[in-house]
Amino acid sequence: MRIETLCIVPMSAIGSALSSYIAQNIGANRKDRVSQGYRAANIMIILIAQWFGTPCRLAGLQTSVSRLPTTRQVNGK
């Protein structure tokens, strides 16, 4: 299992859960809870990203995004 997978799965799960949460609250006409849930999910995602990202950066581990070619490398300029 790659480190990137460990970082992405929790955030993806929160997104999936948020979809159902929002749909149920819109159906129940509780739009105030939609914004609360959205804010809470964003905070959780930011905290998870920091929790996984900080040790990786301190250890010098790179993610696949940092290994992507730059525009200059692709265009040959």
Rank of each mutant, 00 (worst) to 15 (best):
T63I: 03
M11V: 15
P10E: 04
T70F: 00
Q50R: 09
R39L: 14
T5E: 15
I14R: 04
K31R: 10
G15S: 11
N75Q: 13
I3R: 07
G15K: 01
S20D: 09
E4V: 03
S19V: 13
I8D: 05
Q36F: 09
E4S: 14
N25M: 06
I46E: 02
I3M: 06
R57V: 03
S66V: 08
S19D: 11
K77G: 15
D32P: 01
Y38W: 07
L6I: 01
G76W: 07
L6T: 02
W51C: 13
K31T: 11
Y21L: 13
W51S: 14
P55V: 02
C56D: 02
I43N: 09
I48W: 06
I26C: 02
Y21C: 10
V34W: 02
Q73K: 11
S64C: 06
V34P: 07
K31G: 04
G15Y: 05
I45Q: 13
V34G: 04
Q36M: 11
M1P: 06
T70P: 01
R72M: 03
N29C: 06
S12I: 13
D32E: 15
G37R: 09
A17G: 15
R33N: 12
G15V: 05
S19T: 15
I43T: 14
R57Y: 03
G76I: 05
V9Y: 05
R2I: 04
W51M: 15
Y21W: 07
A40Y: 07
A13T: 12
R39Y: 05
A23T: 12
Q36N: 11
I26T: 12
Q62K: 15
S19Q: 13
V65K: 07
G15I: 05
F52N: 01
Q62M: 09
L68W: 05
V74A: 05
N42C: 14
G27H: 04
A41W: 03
Q24H: 12
L61W: 13
T5F: 08
R30N: 15
V9K: 10
I8V: 14
V9F: 07
A40Q: 13
Q36D: 14
G76Q: 06
T54R: 11
I8A: 14
Q24E: 15
T5H: 07
M11N: 10
N42D: 01
I46H: 04
I43A: 08
R67G: 00
A13H: 00
Q62Y: 03
R39P: 00
A17Q: 10
L61H: 11
M1Q: 08
N29H: 09
I48V: 08
A13K: 05
I3Y: 09
G76R: 12
G53N: 06
R2Y: 08
L18E: 03
G37W: 01
A49I: 12
A41N: 02
T70A: 02
S35F: 12
P69D: 02
A17P: 00
E4D: 14
I22T: 14
A17M: 10
G37K: 07
Q36K: 15
M1V: 07
L58A: 10
P55C: 03
R39W: 06
I45G: 01
G53C: 00
Q73L: 03
T70H: 01
Q73C: 01
N42P: 00
L68M: 14
Y21I: 12
R39T: 11
R33S: 07
R72T: 09
D32V: 06
I48S: 11
S35W: 08
A23G: 03
